Amino acid sequence: MTETTHARVALVTGGSGGIGRAVAECLAQDGQRVAVHYAGNQTRAEETVQAIEAAGGRAIAVGGDVADENEMAAAFDQTEQAFGGIDVVVNTAGLMVLGPLATFDLDDLDRMHRTNIRGTFVVSQQAARRVRNGGAIVNFSTSVSKLQFPGYAAYAASKGAVNAMTLILARELRGRDITVNAVAPGPTATKLFLDGKDQADIDNLAKAPPLERLGTPDDIAEVVAFLAGPGRWVNGQILYANGGII
C-alpha cells in the first residue's frame, strides 16, 4: 500500500550499518520517510528500521546489489510504492581495499570499482530519473583524494570517479531544482576504516585534525542531513567533512 504523505522520502544505500545507518536515523529524525538499503545483511537493515520506528519514524528495508541496475530499479520501485515517491537519495554504499599500487590485486581493484564506480553510477542514474523536483542526491567521496595516504591509490581512484559523476550530474539536472553533491569524509571511526589499523596508526590519525579526534558517523550524517534538507544553495560541490585535517 502506498503511503500518502507530504513528508520527504529518502533512500539510503548501505543504510544497514556505519555511516549509512547514522544517515538513515538522522534523516528519520528530521521527519523524512526512509528506505534503508542493504546488499547482503537484511538483519542489520531490519534492526535499523526497528530503531527508526522505535523513535517514532517511518522506514522500510530494501535490498539489492548497487551495481545491478535491475535490482536497484526494484529497490527504487519498492520505495516509491511504500511512500509515494523519492526526494532524497544518499549513496553511502562502498568498499575500501587498501594496498600499494605496485602489488595491488587486480581482482580486488575490479571488485571495489564495481561497487564504488558502477554502483554509484547505477544509483545516480536511477536517482536522476526518479527524484522529485526539489530533491537532493548525495554521493560519497573521500578526503584521501587530497590527503594522498600511501596504500589508498585504488580506493582514491574510485572516489575520484565519484567526484566526476557528481559534478557533472549537478549540471545535467539543470532546471529540475535537484541538488547533487558529494560528502568526502576524513578519518572516521567506522569498522570499514578501523579494520587492519593498529592503535598507533589510529592515534596518529586522531591527532591530525585541529579538533584532535576521529570523526564519528553522526558527524558525517549531520552534513548529509544539511544537504538533504535546508542546504538548497549548495550544489555541484564536494564537501570535505574531516575536522580540518586538510
Score class of each variant (00 low, 15 high):
91 N>R: 09
131 V>K: 00
218 D>F: 04
58 R>C: 09
136 A>S: 15
210 P>Q: 11
225 A>C: 11
57 G>D: 01
61 A>E: 03
47 E>P: 02
211 L>G: 00
214 L>Q: 02
86 I>T: 13
58 R>Q: 15
33 R>K: 09
193 F>T: 05
12 V>Y: 12
226 F>M: 13
81 Q>V: 08
200 A>P: 00
176 R>F: 07
80 E>F: 01
113 H>W: 15
29 Q>R: 15
5 T>R: 09
117 I>F: 12
41 N>K: 05
147 L>W: 04
136 A>H: 12
225 A>N: 13
4 T>W: 10
92 T>Q: 11
175 G>T: 09
69 E>Y: 12
11 L>S: 00
27 L>P: 02
232 R>W: 10
87 D>V: 09
109 L>T: 07
191 K>V: 13
169 L>S: 03
228 A>L: 10
88 V>T: 14
149 F>A: 12
158 S>Q: 01
128 A>P: 02
175 G>D: 01
120 T>A: 15
244 G>P: 09
225 A>V: 09
151 G>L: 12
227 L>A: 09
33 R>A: 11
234 V>T: 14
157 A>Q: 05
120 T>K: 07
123 V>D: 06
35 A>Q: 02
168 I>S: 14
241 A>V: 11
54 A>S: 15
225 A>E: 03
137 I>Y: 03
104 F>V: 11
235 N>Q: 03
120 T>W: 09
93 A>V: 10
102 A>M: 10
227 L>I: 12
